[in-house]
Amino acid sequence: MNDMTEEWWPELAPKVTQTVAEKPSYRVVDVHTHFSVLAAAEIARPFFKPEYEPRSLYSSAETLRYNREYRASARQTAQFEDAEARLADMDKQGVDLQVLAVPPTEYFYWLDEPHAVQASRVQHERFAEIVARHPHRFAAVANPPMNHPELAVEVLREAKRDLGFNGFELSADVLGLDLDHPRFDVVWEAAAELEMVAIMHPQGFTHGQRMTDYYLINVMCMPLASTLATTRMILGGVWRRHPDFQMIVVHGGGYLPFYFARTDHAFEVRPELRKHIDHRPSDYLRKLYFDTNVFDPDMVRHLVTEFGAEHVLLGTDYPFDMGTVDPLAFIERVDLNDHERRLVLGGNTTRLLRLDQP
């Protein structure tokens, strides 16, 4: 690395500043944020192996170094771990309420059952504490131990019953196992029964050998992982078997919402795609929801046009540097009418996660 790179490196981290957009009179809700729970990370730390974290496993030395320094900065530490620091940023952004979820590095799917339950409960208790302290500013979703599906169902029931969580976060794979595998059907069935919405957020891409340079393991692979997972879930018949299961896919849903016509065409001409579904793949895709963290206003407009404003939700990926720093200003650039904007900025998340319920 040359000296010039080292000089401008610290300036890469985005700093939240006062929004340049006008704050609407209605509530603005951010469905895609991450909050770190260090006590749970300490439980998991003794059992960690590098192969459990594909985003690090396939990162270059330059990326790993930058990530360490960036995450250790005082600003990032406060944003990830301090609710009060987040409130100050939210006020600048014009965001009234954040939905808290763990960072994907804290799924800890590789833990055995006793430690997995312990880590999830510590995370959930921390989230519940923050929500209780700031009920009008934060909501939260669960982190079920997906590598133990029956246990994941128990954890979801507990989070719903005891803490009032109406959603859960999950990765785009579980230790490399795809989500169309039948062993996860008990989770989708329980989620539909409990009316808990899934938020798919990939942890990385499990086959990233060609993606180590240029931060492609995040830039390209995060939406790629969601694309693969969503496509497999559709073609594997997840929504045919569980039509009431609801899922939000962050990063605008990956690439599939912008190129589903090819998959529809393959469904018409290839028998391999028709084993588990009896409708076009895009018919199932239209049941899903997508956030706005896509960086291009025209892409948000495409999502609204193609899937309806009711299926698009404001999401920033706060506090990661691959997030939307001024979400109100970004959505202001999208060609939306007042009704569409109201739905995107908070109405849809409020409805899906039932945020108006006590």
Rank of each mutant, 00 (worst) to 15 (best):
A190G: 13
S56G: 15
A159V: 12
L303C: 09
G236H: 05
L38P: 07
R333L: 14
L285H: 02
L336D: 05
F258R: 05
A225Y: 00
G254P: 10
Q18K: 13
L273C: 10
L288S: 08
L228R: 12
A192E: 10
V95R: 02
V325K: 03
A225V: 10
P104R: 00
E310D: 11
V99N: 01
A128L: 08
M222D: 01
E268W: 09
G236N: 07
E268S: 14
D264I: 13
Y255S: 08
V174T: 11
T349E: 03
P46F: 02
E169Y: 00
Y259K: 05
H34M: 06
H124E: 12
T206F: 02
P149A: 08
N337I: 12
A88T: 14
A83F: 04
A116I: 11
E332Y: 06
Q76P: 08
Q118Y: 08
L273G: 01
W110G: 12
C221I: 03
V300E: 03
A198M: 13
Q98R: 06
A159H: 06
V174N: 03
W188H: 09
Y318N: 04
F290A: 02
V269F: 08
H201D: 03
Y214V: 09
A329M: 05
A152Q: 03
P243I: 11
P243Q: 06
M299F: 02
V37T: 13
M220L: 15
A329I: 07
Q357K: 09
